[in-house]
Design a protein around this nucleic acid. Structure first.
Lengths: 169, 169
DNA sequence: TGGCGATAGTTGTTCCGTCAACCAATTTGG
DNA sequence: CCAAATTGGTTGACGGAACAACTATCGCCA
């Protein structure tokens, strides 16, 4: 099959997107690790739990929300449980399933980490963008996620309702 | 200090950007590993070398172009050298420095991997975007990189000139 | 010219993610 | 109603990445 190479505009956009995707996780991770002793993924897991009802989610749901594989999530939650931030217990109605619940210490950790993290996100992302660009970014990311995550699992919690007054992502 | 929380529009854009940043590297890696036995980072390293003059770069320059730390690059290049894709040799003029040169087999590997990779990029990214969104993405990524990579090291090779007819990124 | 700080790379340790294999519970189809 | 397939989750082995410590060379300046 004949390769459809990227044209000049696409190539320029692509090089910059790769750079962002390569650099952004490191920036987020560095700030959170330094200030809170959490990786960005660990923080994201705790934040998802903090916003769930009963601060509890099944492992499978949590994996979908964080776009993690089940083995990865299992390892991470085991470590978080060892640090007393999460508690695991079997589901009553389906004995195959495991529920993960945020502990009090886990909730405190999210609440303590959130302001610094949001400040980092603001400095590195939103302070650099106009409000028009924020809207464009929303549209572009939505379009990409239709390919990368067709079922929209990662953003399921955010589709319908606003989430004011909760710890930020 | 009072935390400047994200407003609703920022939060919506942010959740989606995190999802993209989390999912995109995995998609690229999976395709390249399956079809070419290379990680995306390894492919990127080889591609940078293939576009350099003499297909040769100093380790430090290569690290900047790929936004890698020197230790990470050193490990990767050692493995690539073990597979015969790259050759390392000391710099004549500065005996501290090491040059990395793409071998013939390395060049063949990049050329063989490029079409499948570009096809994956097209399917997962550009086929989902309008040409207007591609231009917006360019602008947004540029704005973010001013914070994430102030010196513009990662995109240094692409700033001035077009690069037609070379293996794609 | 000789000594000190800066620069260029490598090596080793430790941690995290992926993959494959595995077990347990549940659903489905004959 | 029982066997087979599917789902839910954990574990262990392996490979890659970050970080720190180390060696070697260079440039500067007294």
């Amino acid at each position: 099959m004949q390769t459809r190479w990227l044209d000049e505009d696409e190539r320029a956009a692509w090089v910059r997107l790769v750079a962002v995707v390569e650099l952004l996780p490191g920036v987020l991770d560095t700030q959170l690790r330094r200030d809170s002793g959490l990786t960005h993924f660990e923080y994201f897991v705790l934040a998802m739990l903090s916003e769930a009802s009963e601060r509890t989610l099944r492992m499978t749901s949590l994996a979908q929300l964080t776009s993690a594989t089940l083995p990865r999530l299992s390892h991470v939650v085991r470590r978080l449980e060892g640090r007393g931030l999460v508690h695991r217990f079997p589901c009553e109605t389906d004995k195959r399933a495991t529920n993960a619940r945020l502990t009090g210490a886990g909730y405190d950790a999210v609440v303590a980490a959130a302001p610094g993290h949001v400040e980092g996100v603001r400095q590195n992302v939103f302070d650099a963008l106009t409000s028009e660009q924020v809207a464009q970014l929303h549209g572009i990311a939505d379009a990409l996620l239709q390919r990368l995550d067709p079922e929209g699992r990662m953003t399921a919690l955010y589709a319908p309702e606003a989430t004011a007054g909760k710890p930020e992502i």
